[in-house]
Amino acid sequence: MAQTPVETSTPSSSSPIDLSGEAGWAPFDAPALVGESLRFVSGEPDGNRFRVRYYRDSEKHLHARIWFGPETGGPPGHVHGGAVAAVMDEALGLAAWAAGYSIVVGNLNVSFRTMLPLEQVVTLESRVISAEGRKVKVHGRLFCGEAVYAEGECLCITIRGK
């Protein structure tokens, strides 16, 4: 089933920002799962920094559509690596939570593949790749079409008593 586009206006132009998901993706209410901890990246859905909408597919893998606004700038015309890492931290940690693991991220490794232009909508796909004892590993990829901007892997540690 096709998703209804979620559009907001961009501060630098009058064209809308389409953060709709792919066919077969269901909107995912991330704040309802983890609460206010998502404020840093996805807490301002109409801001000039990040705009993020989360989805899950039929296999329950987490996906996101992300717009990196002008306030995420680094090299001229491109997104700062720290902004990419922040999105990876939130999305990969959230993927573990969405899979049923109450975790904190213990280690995050981001490999930058190519510079990401500002004000472009990209997709982040993530999935839990292993779980052993208290350790949960999650992999993610930030891309648009054939262009892969970054890949990340995090080691998450389950929170005792949760």
Rank of each mutant, 00 (worst) to 15 (best):
G93N: 05
V34N: 08
N48A: 13
T158K: 06
A150L: 01
V41W: 08
S130L: 03
S13Y: 06
M88K: 01
A95K: 04
G133F: 05
S12I: 15
S13P: 05
L108G: 07
V6T: 07
Y149C: 04
E59K: 04
A91N: 07
T158Q: 14
F50H: 03
T72G: 05
P70D: 13
T114M: 10
F143P: 02
S111A: 14
W25T: 04
P5A: 10
G82L: 07
V87D: 00
G152S: 12
L92P: 01
G43C: 14
E7H: 06
E125C: 07
N48Y: 01
G140E: 02
E153G: 05
K137H: 12
K162L: 03
L116C: 04
V122M: 08
H80T: 07
V6L: 14
K137T: 15
P45G: 09
V84D: 00
D18T: 00
V84R: 01
R127P: 00
C156V: 09
V104G: 03
L116M: 10
R65L: 10
V34L: 05
G161Y: 13
E59P: 00
R113T: 11
G140H: 02
H78M: 08
L38C: 14
P117M: 09
G140V: 03
S58Q: 15
D89C: 08
A86D: 07
N107I: 04
F28T: 11
G140W: 02
K162Q: 07
H61A: 15
Y101M: 07
A86M: 10
